[in-house]
């Protein structure tokens, strides 16, 4: 018999080497459409990694299918481009088998909220150590322009020529509904904001869910322009900061307060600063965060970004591994000969 070892515990890797963006960039030609928002997300990630002090060989990007899912090919780390919707499932198996790895999951709105919706909510429910980035462009890009589960009602696309009949998923609401322990939103026009949110996701123990508002300049150009363009951001993006009153606008003249049907936007001058909601990521009950996620009715109204929720809760793969260690501590490591004789036996 061979000793059963945990892969990944055998190698002594020494101190984390200093790296640069180039170290994290693979030799593969990036093949997104020129002008695609995915480029800036990739750059943000490649530039952030050296700052995180992560190890390339311990970093794995897992993706499904779609434009976003090409992401792993461009990172000089380990990576698997899997099948449509299943990236969270594959990543779950990897994270369970290898708690020593940093596992990132990359997918689009179709990948994660349509075909893979089930895997996403269950990964979030389990709270397994994955950093899940959902690039939301509200359209199917790779199949050339059908509505997605985040497309707005009435949206005209190739598969909804007279307007979309169904209403969209709000990714943040979905994640909070699954009681994800870390939920955040950022956008492809602000590298520093992306990096700050990605860093927080990386540092979170458990499933970290990040919605990245991403522009598809071919099939859904400008869908977030009215909130993410530099000149409108101050008035249209509500930057959530833990422990601070939720304010926005060039003069911080607007704020968020509790209303009878959830949180609402008010003018600070009208209600007084003392009535402005102070953001608290750590509230265990997800209701306030959920209410915040419902604040923007369309991608053209003031929209919260930043961390909606970040709570400590038991991480899944650690707990699974702990059960195994506890049993082994109690019973010792399994003996195959004993197992085969664990039922009544007789001799001939």
């Amino acid at each position: 018999m061979t000793d059963v070892l945990d892969p990944g515990t055998e190698m002594d890797l020494g101190p984390v080497p200093e790296t640069t963006r180039a170290d994290w960039s693979s030799d593969q030609e990036v093949r997104w459409c020129p002008g695609c928002g995915d480029y800036s997300i990739l750059s943000a990630m490649q530039m952030l990694m050296p700052e995180l002090g992560a190890r390339r060989e311990k970093t794995v990007f897992i993706s499904g299918i779609g434009c976003a899912a090409r992401f792993p090919y461009y990172m000089d780390t380990y990576g698997v481009h899997t099948i449509h919707g299943r990236a969270p499932a594959v990543a779950t198996g990897l994270a369970m088998a290898r708690p020593d790895l940093d596992v990132w999951v990359i997918g689009g709105d179709g990948d994660m909220l349509s075909i893979g919706g089930n895997h996403l909510i269950h990964a979030l429910r389990r709270n397994i150590n994955l950093n899940i980035l959902l690039f939301n462009n509200q359209i199917y890009g790779l199949t050339k322009g059908q509505f997605s589960p985040t497309s707005q009602k009435g949206k005209v696309t190739k598969s909804s020529p007279v307007g979309l009949v169904s209403r969209p998923f709000n990714p943040i609401s979905v994640a909070l509904g699954a009681e994800a322990t870390f939920v955040a939103r950022t956008h492809d026009m602000d590298r520093r904001h992306m990096q700050e949110v990605f860093r927080r996701a990386y540092e979170h123990e458990g499933s970290a869910f990040v919605e990245v508002l991403q522009n598809c300049n071919i099939f859904n150009d400008g869908v977030f322009a009215s909130i993410t363009k530099k000149d409108v951001r101050e008035d249209m993006l509500i930057d959530l900061q833990h422990g601070k009153p939720i304010l926005f606008g060039s003069e911080k003249q607007f704020g968020v307060t509790r209303g009878p049907e959830g949180v609402v936007i008010v003018e600070v001058a009208e209600v007084g600063i003392e009535h402005i909601l102070v953001h608290d990521e750590t509230i265990r009950n997800p209701s306030t965060a959920f209410s915040l996620s419902r604040l923007a009715k369309t991608p053209a109204t003031p929209t919260p970004v930043g961390v909606f929720r970040a709570i400590d809760s038991g991480e899944y793969s650690t707990s699974v591994a702990a059960q195994i260690r506890e049993v082994q501590a109690q019973l010792g490591k399994g003996d195959l000969a004993e197992l085969l004789r664990s039922q009544p036996t007789w001799k001939v």
Binding site: V80, T82, I83, A89, V90, L94, M96, A97, R98
Partner: peptide, 11 residues
């Protein structure tokens, strides 16, 4: 899918 992920990880 999870089994494929675990296999990739060396299980």
């Amino acid at each position: 899918g999870a089994a494929i992920g675990a296999s990739y990880g060396g299980s």
